[in-house]
Design a protein around this nucleic acid. Sequence first.
DNA 1: CTCGCGATAATGTATAGACAAAAAGAAATC
DNA 2: GATTTCTTTTTGTCTATACATTATCGCGAG
Lengths: 233, 233
Amino acid sequence: MTLSERIRHDFESRILSGTLAPGERLPTEQDLMELYGCARMTVNKALSALSAAGLVERRRKAGTFVARPRVHSMAMDIPDLGAEVAARGQAYRFALSRRKLVRAADAAVKWDVNGEVPLLELSGIHFADDAPMAWEHRFVNAAAVPEIVEAEFSSPGGWLLEHVPWTEADARITAAAATGAEAKALAVSAGAPCLCIERRTWRGTEPITYVRQLFLAGAYELNAHFGPSAGSR
Amino acid sequence: MTLSERIRHDFESRILSGTLAPGERLPTEQDLMELYGCARMTVNKALSALSAAGLVERRRKAGTFVARPRVHSMAMDIPDLGAEVAARGQAYRFALSRRKLVRAADAAVKWDVNGEVPLLELSGIHFADDAPMAWEHRFVNAAAVPEIVEAEFSSPGGWLLEHVPWTEADARITAAAATGAEAKALAVSAGAPCLCIERRTWRGTEPITYVRQLFLAGAYELNAHFGPSAGSR
DNA sequence: CTCGCGATAATGTATAGACAAAAAGAAATC
DNA sequence: GATTTCTTTTTGTCTATACATTATCGCGAG
């Protein structure tokens, strides 16, 4: 591994692990060049790469700072439903119907976490202007994000977006008919078409959350854009 | 604009416009440093950035080459249904039901192309093991891709993937109930839940294709992965 | 003709230094 | 006290050079 790669990796892992919190300032290039005993260009290359990757933000004279978790830099927005509904001028509300700490082994979901890991199980309904638009069932790795167990939030997705940067995610998107319980919660008849999104996110290799969301057809659409992204410049 | 940015931009635009074709070799760093009258590090920075962005591939001793159109490097795969169905061990077939050259102004679809542009309108059904799985309605910019008008293909999506690299795409994903005509084509009852994908692609700023696909719930799922991609290294 | 091997041409990384640009913070002025 | 101006710190870019790395190409031996 080359030196600049090592410097980059050092800070990357500290940022991803949370040792360096969002907003925190990194040492100056001067300091790092003494610390690693190398030329400034070498340090600069490493930090510039981190900046291009969106992990840090650099400001002249001020310094280099760990970037705040980015919502929009990824190819597909991880939607913060609250913000989206508000952007359409509707009133948003999330009604929590379940909040319980469970062992991973007891969770009725296949998720690649160790059975002894504590999970916070959450479920509830998203409302736009008091009309139900989505049903959500979520598990959060309470070992990785202990704060959430006591946290107050208006919606779990929004809270996570603000507090826990994710570095990796996958999504599975299907269409499904609402089953009895789901249909009842969403106040539609059984068999109504829904958009089903299952998503898992990680910070590094550490699982953060698994969520299954069921959107009423017509109430929501997913938009994705692929191409030269602003974050890659 | 800095010099290295300018060098990068020069080649980026030539690659995206197709002036530099995939596989073609770029000048060596030596040549470029004479051409632009600068140091090699400056050229190197520009080319390394292009390499990190996945636009070129660099090989020691061999040189720098325009990367081949990448199907899988983007965050979400633009699915080639034929390949996916085949991967599941099923027999794939596309039944073309319409193939007609129309003026953009006459197309019953809102798409941001000039009204006089000739479009090839295609529609048909995707079968897996002789069971219909999706209905597709597509327009292709015949001015940008004249070859397709005469082309033989087993599926329009597969043909485009192989022949026309796209640089930008967006997608709109919703759930919908199959309407009468659609339900009939897919051999299900009206109101059956479907996954609806509308997608547009561009090469540079030139529109390539617009497609609306309707998948039967259960017959198909969309998978996306977000994270440090192989192309960004 | 084939295989292996070395010369060579290309990229990859690093150095030390220089100047530019921006912006925060301090000082001077109104 | 508010505004302007100056200083200084920190990043941004570029230069010229050096050496490392490696895959390709051509040549020679078998």
